[in-house]
Design a binder for these strands. Structure first.
Lengths: 193, 193, 193, 193
DNA sequence: GATGAATGAGGCTTCATTCAT
DNA sequence: AATGAATGAAGCCTCATTCAT
């Protein structure tokens, strides 16, 4: 009975929101623009989210979840710290190539003072950082002065910052190739080990 | 005399704008709120800036200029790379203590995809990074693979990111004390040298 | 069987509509809220009423009909005017106790300039008032200057106004007890006889 | 400096709001309709009231204040209760002739369950009713069973209800002439004395 | 030079209503 | 017969900006 929810529509809304937030900022991504870009009625959005804020929160949440999964995945694939970081960093770069909006979106909102990260996801991320630190210490691969905060700053934050600087073409290079990956990886290892 | 009064007004406007942008975002910092907080008529603002955008651009420009000056200053004070980085980092931390709004503001807008950094300032910053790189290479203190981009990412971007993560209390530490400074400095040096 | 289920649904819709109109006003009683409260699909409502307006009109109509029936009933039960008024007033008070929403609803919409009372019901009410007047005159119980309008204003309007003032606790009494009934009855009789 | 506030505009807004609320109800009196009718920009309204609700509250407050003043005035002019009621009732009728919207507006909102009367005005009205009751008792003119609530219901509420019933032409008379005044006065006195 | 009254476009959100299923 | 997904107009409100004073 009744029509089935058109999942495509929701997906289009999310994509449109991300794209518009990335290019126009939170304030510049108006509901009407999002709806128009998604080819959906303005009111439709509110059948799935109680407010624009909640839509963006959800977007941030699900994108951060991808990071959490990336971190989890990396630890399943290897026990060597350099390898773990490589996996994570490669995933970010891959992410940047296949879905550049998403990495821009993350970059834009992770830093925003108005969008506090969901407590649950935050603790998952912290938990993963602690786990990585433990692996490193257990295998004597990590500078003992390194904290989970540093793991986060170099394993997550720095690659994202790097990628976005490249995307912004800040230093007249926008390459996100193998050389760039190696560069990031090398510095991260130098910093933490 | 009249000019002096003027300057105060403008200064108050700038401070109010920064504070409101930091706490409410660009969209949440309306002209009327800024004017009210600054104790100035709404229209007054338009005698100095053609638009709100231009006001914020100018704010970003002048705050970035402080960074340029910080970089310039650091090179005048020492020729040793570790010392130079220490000076810069100490200045950022000092900045964070005395004018936290400003460092938050920089953090919020530097990364924004909507506020492109003034071309002139950008090249100044790049120029300073190149200069620092040269000093480092001349004194054999720098990993030769390090580029000016890396100098920027670790000399400017990373300290600001670190400070803001601490301010946001992301890992349950909001300390910006000597230990924090040493920590940042140590990692930067490990990464670049 | 299916029909019975239907009737329940419709009844639930009506009750929900009344409750929401009373507590949120006509504008605050949205179809979706009514449907949700009634546990019914939004579209269902439109199988019985062509519009929200028509639903409310019908609600008003059927509730006013109860008043007409109350008036009719009272005349069947007695020929003495005081008795007739007593019956009517007691019914209103009883009504207020058992179904407070309804008396509030009547109060809210009877006075509304947007919901004109159905012509048919209006003439029924007028007819009843005339009938009561006739009884009074026939038995020499009524001040001859009293018109059917006065019968209405004191037999119907005043009790409803009184009850609602008490419900609103306007004068710090919300009692609707026997004393209140006696008080109303006494004044009505003093006014009309 | 700067333009002077155009008091006419505010007055036009108030009049338009009253007229539209009377004819379309609170919900039907939209900001845009009010602004259009008043010949004023939509946003202008918000320079004087923080919300639509507050505008209507203020309207209700100021109109109720007229009633308070009417009650106060009446007691200054006479010490005889019949005279006091006559003055009040005459004022209401006069009011109805010169400013019919206002009396309709009062009628519409006084009874509304969504617009609670300002506590301050309420106590003023109660105070006046008590004062009138005292005068009546002091001069042995009042039925001792009569409370201030009754004074209100017959001195204020009933005349307004009567006038609005006439305006609505409920019993095919819309006269608000001397006869009507005498009729109301006579019944009120019969009821309370 | 400075003010703040006034504007109206545009933002977010809700709503009555329709109609495919 | 009944559902509830989908619509888009309209509601309330805020905002950057203008301009008479």
């Amino acid at each position: 009975m009744a029509r089935i929810i058109d999942e495509t529509k929701l997906e289009r809304i999310k994509l449109a929101a991300i794209e518009l937030i990335v290019s126009n900022g939170y304030g510049g991504a108006s509901i009407s623009k999002i709806a128009k870009m998604a080819g959906v009625a303005e009111g439709y959005l509110y059948r799935h989210y109680p407010s624009k804020q909640e839509l963006v929160k959800d977007l941030l949440r699900s994108n951060l979840n991808q990071i959490v999964e990336t971190l989890e995945q990396s630890q399943k694939e290897s026990e060597e710290l350099t390898k773990i970081f490589e996996i994570v960093i490669r995933l970010f770069f891959n992410f940047a190539k296949t879905e550049p909006h998403r990495i821009k979106f993350l970059f834009a909102l992770m830093n925003d003072y108005n969008f506090v990260i969901d407590e649950e996801i935050k603790s998952k991320i912290i938990y993963q950082c602690i786990a990585i630190k433990k692996i490193g210490l257990a295998h004597n691969q990590l500078d003992p002065q390194i904290s989970e905060e540093d793991i986060y700053l170099f394993g997550v934050s720095y690659p994202i910052v790097f990628i976005n600087h490249r995307i912004k073409n800040y230093f007249d290079t926008s390459e996100l190739d193998e050389d760039a990956i190696q560069k990031v990886l090398r510095i991260v290892i130098k910093a933490l080990f």
